[in-house]
């Protein structure tokens, strides 16, 4: 357990930057696949923060949380991509701005 030489704070700040970039991706990209990828980026940023905090607290709980986030992400991706495939068949488009059947 040598000294890492880098403050935990920097890791967490980096994670915040990545998280925000993921958020921006979700909000701005119109391609549904890209939107999912941005969500993955957000989850990864959260993972980075968790690992950094786990380092700080020298505890295993953070690592386990990361493990579960990864697994859940895998499950989400499977369902999400299936949905995209389904909607592509119907609409021949995966532009999420084309999803506006409901108006009020």
């Amino acid at each position: 357990m040598g000294s890492s030489g880098v403050s935990i704070e920097l890791y967490v700040l980096l994670s915040a930057v990545l998280f925000i970039m993921g958020t921006i991706g979700v909000l701005l990209r119109r391609n549904a696949i890209l939107v999912f990828m941005s969500v993955e980026l957000m989850l990864n940023a959260a993972n980075l923060a968790l690992v950094a905090f786990a380092r700080q607290w020298a505890g295993g709980d953070g690592h386990l949380m990361v493990f579960f986030v990864m697994t859940v992400a895998a499950a989400e991706v499977a369902v999400g991509l299936a949905l995209i495939v389904a909607i592509f068949r119907t609409k021949k488009s995966i532009d999420i701005d084309n999803l506006h059947l409901f108006k009020e």
Binding site: T23, V26, A46, A49, Q56, D61, I84, I96
Partner: peptide, 24 residues
């Protein structure tokens, strides 16, 4: 379904980040 999914995944990103900060 797709709307629900995209927004749900988006908001669970916030949830995970929140959990990370609480853990921190």
């Amino acid at each position: 379904a797709l709307k629900y999914f995209i927004l749900g995944a988006f908001s669970s990103g916030f949830l995970v980040y929140g959990i990370a900060l609480v853990y921190g």
